[in-house]
């Protein structure tokens, strides 16, 4: 894709205290592109996502979002610039209702009611569960809420951290279709960390392979059809 870079990292290092987890990562995601980050457990995929959204500070390097250097901005400012995050484990506000979770998502955008209807178009179940406590929903429903909550704020880039985890296969397929639709209809840019081969194959334009805090290779998603390649790069 020749489109402008929506998100780019150059020589980013980060970690927790003195423990460096991300050791020199550079990557670029173009507008409307879906890039998967794969690799075994503990190579730093989740920390990479947290560094991009600003929950973990970058120790060095630069993160730019639509040409704006956000490296020194906190998570709140980055969210307001249009970076949406769906964390591993979903992290919906369990003690709050579906409607309240969605209202929180809408805060960052100038979104109104029509925007919520758009979210319900993708996830009809949310419209039926507005007054339910988010914590009492199933894993798949919570995942839909976590993604719907982010879409409600109309982000330009979303980061998805293992959206298939703890979600039944038919919902995983549905999430894959929705990600594709968002790309096609709204030119949404997506950086996704995933272990689920079917979901990666369904959505990714290209795959970055991480190992020991670095991006060590890039492959086309089709290459994962080879069982040996898949076994080498995914923790199955």
């Amino acid at each position: 894709m020749a489109a402008a870079a929506q998100l780019s990292l150059s020589s980013v290092k980060s970690g927790y205290g003195r423990v460096k987890v991300i050791d020199d990562v550079s990557l670029t995601v173009a507008t409307g592109e879906i890039v998967a980050v794969i690799g075994r457990n503990g190579v730093g995929k989740t920390t990479l996502m947290k560094t991009v959204i600003g929950a973990v500070p970058a120790l060095s390097g630069a993160i730019t979002f639509r040409g704006v250097d956000v490296t020194r901005l906190d998570a709140t400012r980055r969210a307001r610039l249009g970076v949406g995050y769906v964390p591993q484990g979903r992290e919906v506000f369990a003690r709050m209702t579906v409607a309240e979770n969605l209202a929180l998502g809408m805060r960052v955008g100038d979104a109104g009611r029509t925007n919520l209807d758009r979210v319900f178009g993708f996830f009809p179940i949310l419209a039926k569960r507005l007054s339910q406590q988010a914590g009492s929903m199933s894993g798949g429903e919570q995942q839909q809420l976590a993604i719907g909550r982010i879409l409600a704020g109309r982000p330009d880039v979303i980061l998805l951290d293992e959206p298939s985890e703890g979600v039944q296969p038919n919902i995983v397929q549905e999430i894959g279709r929705i990600i594709r639709r968002l790309q096609a209809e709204e030119k949404l840019t997506v950086l996704i960390v995933e272990q689920n081969l079917a979901l990666i194959r369904a959505v990714a334009d290209r795959c970055l392979i991480m190992d020991k805090g670095r991006v060590v290779a890039e492959i086309a998603p089709q290459e994962l059809d080879d069982p040996e390649t898949a076994a080498r790069h995914l923790s199955i």
């Binding site: 600003g54 929950a55 998570a75 969210a79 992290e91 506000f93 309240e100 960052v108 704020g153």
Partner: peptide
């Protein structure tokens, strides 16, 4: 209430 339940996620939502 969101900030109380999960401050990091609340911040990630702006």
């Amino acid at each position: 209430r969101a900030a109380m339940e999960n401050p990091r996620m609340a911040a990630a939502l702006g």
